[in-house]
Design a protein around this nucleic acid. Structure first.
Length: 212
DNA sequence: AGCCAGGCTACCG
DNA sequence: CGGTAGCATGGC
């Protein structure tokens, strides 16, 4: 068993299942769209702030592309204000909505997503992994700090390299595609749970039990 | 009171 | 290409 998969097992044993995405409303019609909204809103922000924004949107029945399009822009900005960067994020979300409606239900390619303003690698992978159930591993700041701290990559590693390391390691161990998707989804959530505890404050990794 | 959050774009050299 | 300022609110 390779090291990346061993880390997953250890984290899973320690924290248990995290749930694939902290969905605000299980009964929402368009889960994919909600995940995309959350993925954009959570950029450089805590998910608790995002939940406040999603709650604000929900009471306006605005977890819906057309409702947002027909809404006064300043009103929309007010609703997402708790997540910060509300001017930028409003622009990003409108750009995504345009893209999303044009898809008409199809699953977008990663490359197409990356051409939408406001969607970088992490947000694209977040939308694909949690919104479209695609096997795209999501790398975030915690993942990077963890891999560096464990000596598995060097400090100037790129997103692409980390993603390849995670995906190659996991596909090597897990042959069932459904299981692989589940592990991708859980693994990222576990890293966030672990990262909040040991990789938020410098120096990173103090007390991290993975360092043995 | 200050630092950090589940990033991205624009612009610099 | 790599590096960095700017974006903004909320939590601890």
């Amino acid at each position: 068993m390779n090291q990346i998969y061993t880390i997953y097992q250890t984290l899973y044993k320690h924290y248990g299942a995290q749930g694939w995405w902290p969905t605000f409303d299980e009964n929402i019609k368009d889960k994919t769209f909600e995940v995309a909204l959350g993925s954009i809103l959570t950029q450089n922000t805590t998910f608790t702030s995002v939940e406040t924004s999603l709650q604000n949107l929900h009471v306006e029945n605005a977890i819906d592309p057309d409702v947002i399009l027909n809404m006064n822009i300043d009103k929309f900005k007010t609703l997402i204000k708790p997540s910060g960067y509300y001017n930028q994020k409003a622009e990003y979300i409108l750009a995504f909505i345009k893209f999303y409606k044009a898809l008409d239900g199809r699953t977008p390619s990663r490359d197409d997503l990356l051409h939408v303003k406001g969607i970088g690698e992490e947000t694209a992978d977040s939308i694909l992994l949690y919104g479209y159930e695609q096997c795209e591993f999501k790398i975030d700041a915690y993942t990077k700090r963890l891999l560096i701290e464990l000596g598995l990559v060097d400090a100037k590693v790129k997103y692409k390299e980390m993603k390849k390391l995670m995906q190659d390691s996991l596909t090597q161990e897990i042959k069932d595609k459904k299981e692989l998707l589940k592990v991708y989804q859980e693994y990222h959530a576990l890293i966030v749970a672990h990262g909040k505890k040991f990789y938020s404050k410098k120096p990173y990794g103090v007390g991290c039990f993975l360092k043995n």
